[in-house]
Design a protein around this nucleic acid. Structure first.
Lengths: 211, 211, 211, 211
DNA sequence: AATGAATGAGCTTTCATTCAT
DNA sequence: GATGAATGAAAGCTCATTCAT
């Protein structure tokens, strides 16, 4: 092993360490929001949870607010990745795509206490801090379009003379949102399976030919 | 006017003034949460909005946190009053009660930017501050029971062999919640009439004999 | 009873009531200093102890500080009255006058938790608030003179060739002070009789012919 | 200088600076109590005296009250160190130990305006804040035991048929306390030499064979 | 890159005082 | 004379940020 590779290794180790710390901070900040609420997500709390030094946040994110925004962005990206993978699966039927989105929406990867708490935290301040919007809009335009698309496909495929794809999509999105709210407020009593059945019950009511 | 009535008037005037200030603080605090978010709802912000003095919050509510809780309580009571009046109207059919609840839920009295922002603010911190729960549970057990009751009535009245009142109720509540979320996140684009149509669209899908 | 006497009675009742409230405030303030310390002797504490209204203090004493000073003055006058009555008793011998002062100094009228706490409270701030001095100097010049006088009388009466009345007086005064300190710090364990014996033990040592 | 020593120096320099600031705050707080009294020993006052920043108190002591307690503790430890060094000196006679304690008690190291003001400040609130007791008890049990021990030694050595070591010790301790009180109330006029003579005058009266 | 001591703005709260009733 | 609602200065404390090491 020559000195160059040694250097490179050191460099890589550093970079890896840096990115590790960044990741660690994101997790700690998320945990802090969950445990202590938005107001209680102080640098001291994040420091305690992460075990990292006080100056680390400044080093990686410049300000605490940036860190929190990065948490939201991370969450948002993660969610977008999950739903879009299903929504745009080329080999799935429209009904299966809808079922898949319901499954994803209710899966512990997405619907878990910590992450939902963070969704609610950022959403709660979206009116007063509009800059938050772009970090929590993963359920906005493109998601809406995807659900409308699915509903239109279903309408085309089935016999729904009085059907309205937009109304159906809006209702379904609201339904999914409401399930998150229910989970956030009553995570202890929440039954994922029951929630899924309720969603499918509506889907079947809206699209009886498909579900 | 004798001295006694004079005294009493003076007494009342003070008491009335005090209660007016209390009310004023509640409104100013609500406005502060709406405008500046939970974190920005500082005493200074409330003071500026209310035009009242700094010390008044402590005089009336002992602590700022108490004031915020009183805001939540006020909101919660107001909502409970509205929905329960409709849900328990003795002369309304089950379908009309459901329609009425939808109407109330989407009416500006209930669904307005300020109040919804406050619902979200308190809900966002319910995990970290469990004491908030009792102030925002107006949509909990009793509301759930009322909707289940309506669904059961509809099931009895109509021909829904595969119907499930609890699933239907859970779905409807989630739908209503989701509408609030939609309003909170997109109040500028929100169309109350469209939202109502979407709700009724689901109601009709679930209970085609009634809607 | 004619209207004039009625008026006078009313007037007197008022005056009596006024002085009663003043006295009540003095006691409540003293109690507040004792219970909560100087720093905790707030208007709210005094109000709670007295049961009187907030504005009362302002009415009778203009400021809280004045009330506290009046407490000190009251205490000081009370003490001065007690010791001077004994110190200047014309029919007592010098030794009996000294014994009498010791008795007074250790009697519950003077040496009780509340009053001693107040002595210490005012004395503790005498450096920073020189205006307190005049309210707590009842043990100063004139007391000193009285004790010196007694010691001189004893010296004249007895055979104390190496005696020094001033040294003896200074020592005795310090001894009495020290007993108060002991009582203040350990009132639960303090034994008045033992303290008296210790004082007389010193007196006997200084003036063996007399004690 | 290699990098390791550089690192250690840097480390030490910071630690030394930190501990210097801690010490500085203790001194400034003591000075603040002396100059402005307990009630006037505000963070602003301490800041002004120390020239350090506002936040430093919370950094080093968490709360202002902790800082004040640390001042008391510091004072108490300092005093205990002084008297116990003399009281337990193995090569000194009992009489010399007593003389030594008197000297220490009246020396400017112990008996100076600032420190005595602080003793009085904490003692004045001992009734209302019992947690203060442990910080000002350096003159309690162990001091008492030491003085009783000395008195017993003197009794054994000399001819004091009517002597009572406990009474004598209690009297001496009260005498010393009283001297501190005298100094606190009249530091400008206080004559250390005269006070010492008064103490020795009593010692000689109690133990004529020794003094 | 990493640390944590230091800073001070800004927060909530306390409090003596004022004054309309 | 008596009251207590109202005030705002000043208190203690929290906290994100800075920066020397």
């Amino acid at each position: 092993m020559d000195s160059r590779s040694q250097y490179q290794e050191g460099h890589n180790a550093r970079e890896i360490g840096k990115s590790k710390n960044r990741r660690h901070l994101l997790d700690a900040a998320a945990e802090a929001i969950f445990r202590h609420g938005f107001r209680g997500a102080t640098i001291a709390a994040i420091q305690e949870i992460s075990g990292l030094s006080r100056g680390m946040i400044n080093l990686h994110f410049k300000t605490k607010e940036n860190l929190l925004l990065a948490v939201a962005e991370d969450l948002s990206n993660n969610y977008a990745e999950h739903w879009s993978r299903v929504a745009h699966a080329p080999d799935l039927s429209a009904a299966d795509r809808l079922k898949g989105i319901i499954k994803v929406d209710l899966s512990p990867d997405i619907l878990n206490e910590r992450d939902v708490a963070i969704w609610f935290a950022f959403r709660s301040e979206v009116c007063s801090s509009p800059e938050y919007r772009r970090f929590i809009d993963s359920r906005d335009a493109s998601f809406h379009d995807a659900i409308v698309g699915i509903c239109q496909d279903l309408m085309v495929e089935g016999q729904y003379p009085d059907g309205d794809a937009v109304l159906a999509a809006d209702a379904l999105i609201a339904l999914f949102e409401g399930m998150w709210t229910d989970f956030h407020l009553h995570s202890k009593d929440f039954d994922r399976h029951h929630a899924e059945r309720a969603c499918l019950y509506v889907a079947k009511s809206l699209f009886p030919d498909h579900f």
